Simulated assay, not measured.
Amino acid sequence: MKSMKKFINEESGQGAAEYILLFGGVIVIALLALTIYRSYMETSDKSLKAKDDIIDVRNTILDNRTHV
């Protein structure tokens, strides 16, 4: 009977189980975010290029300076 009470009150593996659940939740959230991001990128009708974006930002800044 003592060994049964000792087994029931044993909590040494509880921390590991909580970490496993925590990391599992983070992984699920990351996979959902990647899925949403992938579908967003696939439906984009404009090709994404950093060089074009930088030129657009510079032109917008220059346009705003001339209007003020």
Rank of each mutant, 00 (worst) to 15 (best):
I55P: 00
S12Y: 09
A33H: 03
V68Q: 13
V26Q: 13
R38C: 05
T60C: 06
Y37N: 05
L32V: 12
G15R: 06
K49Q: 14
R38T: 14
D52M: 09
T35L: 10
L34K: 11
L48R: 14
G15L: 06
E11S: 07
A16V: 08
Y40A: 04
N9F: 04
I55N: 03
K5A: 12
N64C: 01
S47P: 14
M4I: 07
D45F: 07
M1T: 02
L21H: 11
A33C: 02
D52S: 07
S44L: 14
Y40T: 02
R65T: 00
A33I: 02
L32M: 14
A33K: 03
A17M: 10
S12L: 05
N9P: 00
S44N: 15
H67S: 09
Y19W: 04
N59M: 04
Q14E: 12
M1F: 03
L31N: 03
K51E: 15
I36D: 08
N64A: 09
E18C: 03
V28H: 04
K49G: 02
G25L: 03
L48S: 09
I36M: 05
D45R: 10
G24S: 00
N9W: 06
K6Q: 10
R38I: 06
A16C: 01
A33E: 03
L21E: 11
N59A: 04
D52Y: 03
T35Q: 05
I29L: 14
S12A: 07
T66F: 05
M41G: 00
L62W: 03
D63N: 13
R65D: 11
M4W: 09
N9L: 03
N9T: 05
F23W: 03
L31M: 10
E42V: 13
M4K: 14
F23E: 08
V57E: 07
A17V: 10
K6S: 04
S39Y: 07
G15C: 00
M4L: 13
Y19A: 14
K5I: 11
L62T: 00
A33Y: 11
G25P: 00
H67Q: 12
S47L: 08
F7L: 08
L21N: 12
S44Y: 09
E42T: 10
Y40Q: 07
F7R: 11
L48W: 14
V26K: 10
Q14R: 13
K46N: 12
D63G: 05
Y37A: 07
N59V: 00
I54K: 15
I27C: 05
E10P: 02
K46S: 08
R58G: 04
Y19D: 15
K46R: 11
K51D: 12
Y40F: 13
M41N: 13
L22Y: 11
A30G: 05
Y37M: 01
E42M: 05
I29P: 01
G25N: 11
D53K: 12
I20A: 14
M4P: 04
G25R: 06
L31T: 04
H67M: 06
V28F: 08
E11K: 12
T43D: 14
K2H: 07
I54C: 06
S12C: 03
L34P: 02
A33S: 02
T66P: 00
A17C: 01
T60A: 12
A33G: 03
Y40G: 02
L32R: 07
T60H: 06
Q14L: 14
